[in-house]
Nucleic acid binder design. Structure first.
Length: 295
DNA sequence: GGAATCATGTGAT
DNA sequence: ATCACATGATTCC
């Protein structure tokens, strides 16, 4: 794996298998979605990126499992509604019975989660040691944070923004100790982004650090399967507070373990993507990437 | 239809 | 107390 800071100088290097793809992919997604009205052609996009159309097509498809055109379709309102809508099956509801600290097959990663006690939360990380590291990932630079009990934080940024990203994550537990330790975080990362290794024998351990309300919301998110989505009000209903959809939005936005706790699968009732803490483009990218893995 | 407006729960200050 | 929200429904043009 290449360190994030090395990448920018080396857009042409094709030695790094997946991480650098995202640089191109991100820009393609941005263009496609920014002026999607005009449906810009592959040629014009490639031209703006100083790449050949076939190169762009190839990189994009390798990354997403979907051609740029199919990708665009996968993130339209239409498709989003399909992710939300059909069959009105329970989707949520089931897994909350598992309760705290219960192991279960949640999400598509095999995840066990436990929550910090309210006391531990009030301490704002006092006495807690977090090891962290920056890595390349399919969605840009990833900041991983772990405790002895499991994965505690996962954030994203573009190359060059590492310090902002770190401040964002570290600020959530002001009294915790932070130690840079890439060897501790790396195995976690490779496992998370390799769907082939999901559902393995060893569950991925995850530690939810937040208020009671937030943890209920995050648990609810964990039960959304890949390739499906729910609305903020669905979640509100699921946790027994049907009028709290807005509060749910706020809690979803504070999710410290993005992607693993699939907050990108929460959409507005209309199917609009509404927002994403690490940038809407990344939310689109995750949704489209998953569409490629599931289809 | 689309803009403006309200009711709303939570968490930070 | 007050305020900002990754919402959603209603009410006006």
């Amino acid at each position: 794996m290449t360190l994030a800071f090395d990448i920018d100088s080396a857009a042409k290097i094709d030695v790094t298998p997946e991480g650098s793809d995202y640089d191109i992919v991100r820009q393609v997604i941005e263009m496609l979605s920014l002026d999607y009205r005009e449906q810009p052609s592959l040629d014009s996009i490639a031209a703006r990126l100083n790449q050949s159309p076939t190169q762009v097509q190839k990189v994009f498809t390798r990354w997403a499992g979907l051609s740029p055109k199919a990708f665009l379709q996968a993130v339209t309102l239409d498709h989003a509604k399909r992710l939300l809508g059909d069959e009105g099956l329970p989707l949520l509801e089931t897994a909350l019975e598992v309760g705290l600290s219960g192991p279960g097959r949640l999400h598509d990663l095999f995840v066990t989660h436990e929550a910090m006690s309210p006391g531990e939360w009030k301490a704002k990380g006092e006495g807690l040691t977090l090891r962290y590291g920056f890595h390349t990932s399919p969605f840009g630079v990833a900041l991983v944070m772990v405790t002895e009990r499991g994965l505690a934080g996962l954030g994203f940024c573009d190359p060059g923004e590492e310090s902002v990203c770190y401040a964002d994550m570290a600020g959530r537990w002001p009294h915790a100790r932070f130690i840079e330790d890439r060897t501790a975080t790396e195995p976690m990362l490779t496992r998370i982004f390799d769907p082939a290794r999901w559902q393995g024998s060893e569950p991925l351990r995850v530690v939810l650090i937040g208020t009671d309300f937030q943890i209920r919301v995050w648990q609810s998110l964990l039960t959304i399967p890949m390739g499906r989505a729910v609305t903020y009000s669905d979640i509100a209903k699921d946790i027994g507070q049907p009028t709290a959809s807005r509060a749910v939005g706020a809690a979803v936005g504070r999710n410290p373990i993005s992607f693993v706790v699939p907050c990108h699968r929460a959409l507005g009732k209309s199917g609009a993507l509404t927002g994403y803490h690490w940038g809407l483009t990344r939310k689109r990218a995750m949704l489209g990437w998953e569409a490629g893995k599931v289809g």
